[in-house]
Simulated assay, not measured.
Amino acid sequence: MLVTMALPPPASTAEIPAIAARQRMEKKSFTDAEITDGFFKTAFGAEYHLAGRVDRIRKYSTPVRVFADGRRADRKAQLAKVVSDIAARIRNLDIAMTESDDAANVRVKLVRDRDLYHTISQAYGSERAREIKTSLDPQCLSGFRKNEAFEIEHSDVILTVDNGDFVFLDCAYEELLQSLGPINDTSSVPWTMFNDNVSMGYFDVYDQYILNLLYDPRVKAGMTLTEVKAVLPDVLTDVRAWVKQTNNLAE
């Protein structure tokens, strides 16, 4: 017999008034059409991409190990709680922190805000850094490298550490989750953190639906939109049950 219980929000998020207020107001009931619309819009396409096709599913097919590169012990501790929360809420994803940079396939660079543009320039080159600044003007950033099978092999995340707890946690959740595959921001879906007009600071129910759909074993890296639509009804049924029990949702 499987015994389950709803998971509480991590202490690092529940103690922040701006996050607690958003959790009290959070919409948690969605139609199948609302969920699948957001999934298609975020899992396909890319807000900013450097090369390759973006009309296929992209995801990790291996365990994900996250390394924090930075000096702020408090931010590293918060990041570890974020990763633990993500691991608890995405059913078919093996994700955890690692103390070894060599063992990591997600590298999180923790930098001061004044060093953000320089760090982006180091990672992407000065010309592309200018393009990113002009088109996105980010407070934080993530990107990944995929193979020919559209399996993500490595992700890089850049987070600023000195813009307050809310900004740090909001960026940490959004960029870590986007580094797992749903990298296309969209302004047409009002409930997802993958909307530049939406700030959460925690792993909301709607985005739990998106990530659990993506990491269901029946949704495979390299699938087209048509292929995903063929399996999605059965996948969504199972994902609904998981998200419901994890968050103690009403019928």
Results as ranks from 00 to 15, higher is better:
Leu7Ile: 12
Lys109Glu: 06
Ala51Tyr: 04
Glu151Ile: 08
Ile35Leu: 11
Gln245Val: 08
Thr119Gly: 04
Ala123Tyr: 04
Asp55Phe: 03
Glu151Arg: 08
Arg128Leu: 10
Leu110Arg: 12
Arg128Phe: 03
Asp137Ser: 10
Asp162Ala: 10
Glu175Ser: 05
Cys140Leu: 08
Ala88Gln: 15
Phe150Cys: 05
Phe40Glu: 09
Leu116Tyr: 07
Ser121Gly: 13
Asn184Arg: 06
Leu177Met: 14
Tyr206Trp: 13
Phe168Cys: 14
Tyr209Pro: 11
Leu159Arg: 09
His118Asp: 14
Leu214Ile: 07
Asn92His: 15
Ala11Glu: 09
Thr31Ile: 12
Phe166Tyr: 12
Thr4Lys: 10
Ala221Arg: 03
Phe150Arg: 00
Val239Leu: 08
Glu15His: 02
Val64Asp: 00
Leu110Glu: 02
Thr237Phe: 10
Trp242Pro: 00
Ala250Asp: 11
Phe194Lys: 03
Asp94Ser: 08
Arg240Gln: 05
Asp74Glu: 14
Phe39Ala: 07
Asp102Tyr: 02
Gly201Phe: 02
Lys109Leu: 06
Lys76Ala: 00
Lys76Gly: 02
Leu214Thr: 03
Ser199His: 05
Asp238Ser: 12
Leu79Thr: 02
Ser188Glu: 11
Ser61Ile: 01
Leu2Thr: 05
Ala129Asn: 09
Ser100Lys: 05
Arg130Tyr: 00
Thr224Ala: 09
Phe203Trp: 08
Leu214Lys: 07
Lys28Asp: 01
Thr134Gln: 01
Val235Gly: 09
Arg107Asp: 03
Phe44Gln: 00
Arg53Leu: 05
Glu174Pro: 08
Trp242Ile: 11
Lys41Val: 09
Ser126Tyr: 01
Tyr48Pro: 02
Ala11His: 07
Leu2Arg: 15
Asn247Tyr: 07
Met223Ala: 03
Met193Thr: 04
Asp37Val: 01
Ser187Asp: 13
Leu110Gln: 07
Gly181Cys: 08
Thr119Ala: 14
His118Leu: 08
Gln208Phe: 05
Thr36His: 04
Tyr215Met: 00
Asp115Cys: 00
Asp115Ser: 13
Asn92Arg: 12
Arg114Asp: 14
Thr4Phe: 12
Leu236Ser: 05
Asp37Glu: 10
Asp156Gln: 12
Thr186Lys: 06
Val205Asp: 03
Tyr173Met: 12
Ala80Asn: 11
Val228Cys: 15
Leu141Gln: 05
Gly222Gln: 05
Arg107Glu: 13
Arg24Tyr: 04
His49Asn: 10
Gly38Asn: 11
Ala33Glu: 15
Gln208Asp: 06
Arg145Gln: 13
Val82Asn: 02
Ala21Tyr: 06
Asn147Phe: 11
Asp74Arg: 11
Asp204Tyr: 14
Ala241Trp: 01
Met97Ala: 15
Asn163Lys: 15
Asn163Ile: 06
Thr192Tyr: 13
Ser12Lys: 04
Arg91Thr: 06
Asp137Glu: 12
Asp102Lys: 15
Phe39Glu: 03
Pro217Met: 06
Thr226Ser: 08
Leu225Phe: 11
Met193Arg: 14
Ala88Asp: 14
Leu136Ile: 10
Ser121Ile: 03
Arg89Met: 13
Thr246Met: 12
Phe30Glu: 09
Leu211Tyr: 00
Leu116Lys: 10
Pro10Thr: 08
Ala46Glu: 14
Ala33Tyr: 12
Leu141Gly: 02
Pro8Asn: 07
Pro9Phe: 09
Thr36Ile: 10
Asn105Ser: 08
Asp234His: 12
Ala6Thr: 13
Leu110Asp: 06
Glu127Arg: 07
Ala250Gln: 07
Leu180Ile: 06
Glu153Ala: 05
Lys27Asn: 05
Gly45Ser: 00
Gly222Thr: 00
